[in-house]
Design a protein around this nucleic acid. Structure first.
Lengths: 238, 238
DNA sequence: TAGATTGTTAATCGATTAACAATC
DNA sequence: TAGATTGTTAATCGATTAACAATC
């Protein structure tokens, strides 16, 4: 940063520069960069150009450079990008080293599938507890994660540094649980229920995994495919 | 449709009209319409205008009309949309009545979570079998879905009308299983593994649920939120 | 008929791609 | 220095919104 004697303009520059608008389109692509960079590291690749990466990821080199430059100049002209450095930067942007703590609400199959997944650890998220209404499960452990009673949820979240609540309980409970979390430090909901939640007013972020929507997109594509086959067959007859 | 005596121009019109380009952006929104229409039906609402629906869904009325008109004029001037009719049309577009059959590959927690879900039935997809390598599970039932040996997968898919394979097994197996499916009638892969699959050359559609990406998006938002809080605090000090 | 609301065209906005000067 | 590749600006492309004529 250039040092100037007049500090006022620089100060105001920082606060406006610090939060440049990054479009949702770019944000949604960041995790994909994260995955590919991990792959490159696993392969032992030290450096990569936007051109090489674009070939691998099936996107344009231009887009890669454009995306990365939303957050700063991570590359070097004539050289490309240092894989380790770029990965570190992406991790920083995505909060991998932020030490976020999560609880899973619902210890059914889905909750257990997530609890047993390496996904959280890979992304620096620490799952510290699970909650369920099932008396049979309360007190047990899934891996090394304790299953606690739903009755304790609110109190637990108030007395522990929980950042994220993962919603894997039946969707009927979603609204009520969301309410219980209003006065806790939980700031993010990772929602697997079909219920659409809007907690912006409570100052919480909701990220939903709409599995049903994904399935329907697949079905749509299958329909189009069948149409194409049928049309081609008709074309044949002609 | 207006009837004309000269039929040739009409014929060519149909084949070019039948597959109008529908953007990915529109396609990704269709399942959301599906969900809101189900909600309206459950509430007993018979008719809705694009304006009312837009308020509910937090999108513009213009977008709703634009989206729906990609597939045809489902509304009526001065009236709006008949909820049941529109729902039927959306179902048709999304293949809800196409009778797609699916198999789930991997009877672990995730596979079982999906098997027990109402999601498939609601979308007209019939899960007819599950597959696993675990001898303990083979021969058992999850709900009314039989768990079969992975060894039988290829043969089963060849002798049954399977449209969709759901990938819930460890990601290490993804490529190999995809290969096993090449010569089967399976045309769609619903992929829950972190492995990126491109099976366009084999004429298959892949729809992936990248849960890890979703989690990272949430973490990104949490980071931004914390930044804002910190910045506001600094602002306070000044 | 008058009012409402669609279907559709035109205007705007944003995101992607191309191009190239800067620079390692 | 010459070659390579970034960072960034400008051009293009596509998606969203606005507007309104058509029409129920």
């Amino acid at each position: 940063m250039k040092s100037e004697n007049i500090s006022l303009p620089e100060d105001s520059e920082i606060s406006s520069d610090k939060r440049p608008y990054v479009s949702q389109a770019v944000i949604k692509r960041l995790p994909r960069y994260f995955r590919y960079l991990r792959e490159l590291i696993a392969e032992g690749t030290m450096r990569i150009s936007s051109g090489e990466l674009s070939a691998r990821m099936h996107v344009t080199a231009s887009q890669i450079r454009q995306d990365l430059n939303c957050f700063g100049g991570f590359g070097q002209q004539g050289y490309g990008y240092n894989v380790h450095y770029l990965y570190a930067k992406i991790c920083e942007i995505l909060g991998v080293s932020a030490g976020f703590k999560a609880v899973i609400i619902g210890a059914g199959n889905l909750g257990r599938a997530l609890a047993g997944h390496t996904m959280f650890a890979k992304r620096g998220v620490d799952v510290i507890a699970m909650f369920d209404v099932n008396e049979q499960l309360i007190g047990s452990y899934i891996g090394d994660i304790p299953v606690l009673s739903m009755d304790e949820l609110e109190n637990y979240c108030r007395t522990h540094p929980v950042d994220i609540a993962v919603f894997t309980m039946p969707k009927e409970a979603a609204t009520q649980v969301a309410e219980q979390l209003t006065s806790t430090p939980v700031k993010g909901i990772w929602n697997f229920t079909a219920k659409e939640l809007d907690l912006r007013e409570q100052g919480k972020v909701v990220e939903s995994v709409h599995m049903g929507d994904s399935l329907m997109t697949l079905c749509y594509e299958l329909c189009r495919m069948q149409e194409t086959i049928r049309d081609d067959a008709e074309e044949e007859i002609k």
